[in-house]
Amino acid sequence: MNETNNTGIEPDEWEPLRAYTNARIALGKTGVSVPLSESLQFRLAHAHAKDAVYSQLNLDELTTALSITGLPVYCLRSRAVSRDMYLQRPDFGRLLDTPSEEQLRQLNSPPADISIIVADGLSATAIMKNAGAVIPVLVEKIQQAGYSLAPVIVVEQGRVAVKDAIGGILQPRLAIIFIGERPGLSSFDSMGAYITYAPRPGLTDERRNCVSNIREQGLSAELAVDKLMYLIDSAFRLQLTGVALKDNNELGTSNLPKRIADSEAE
Rank of each mutant, 00 (worst) to 15 (best):
L17W: 10
R173W: 09
Q217W: 01
N249C: 11
G168R: 08
L228A: 06
S100P: 04
R200D: 07
V155K: 08
D97K: 03
L138K: 08
V118I: 12
S115W: 02
I9T: 09
S187R: 11
V211G: 02
D233Q: 15
A198K: 11
E38S: 08
V137E: 14
A244I: 00
M85L: 14
M1S: 14
A235L: 06
G8A: 04
R77P: 00
E250W: 10
L219E: 02
G218S: 03
Q144L: 10
G168N: 05
E101N: 09
N108C: 10
L40D: 01
N5S: 07
V73R: 12
I232S: 01
R24K: 12
R259H: 11
R200K: 15
R24H: 08
A26Q: 10
Q41D: 12
I114N: 08
S234T: 09
G70V: 01
G8I: 01
L174C: 09
V152Q: 01
L219V: 03
R173G: 14
I179A: 10
Q88A: 13
V160K: 10
L62D: 06
L66N: 00
N5D: 12
V81K: 15
I127M: 03
V155M: 03
V34N: 14
V155E: 00
F92P: 03
A261I: 15
A124E: 00
I166F: 05
E216N: 10
P90Y: 04
V137W: 07
A26T: 04
P172E: 06
I116E: 05
V118M: 07
A112D: 04
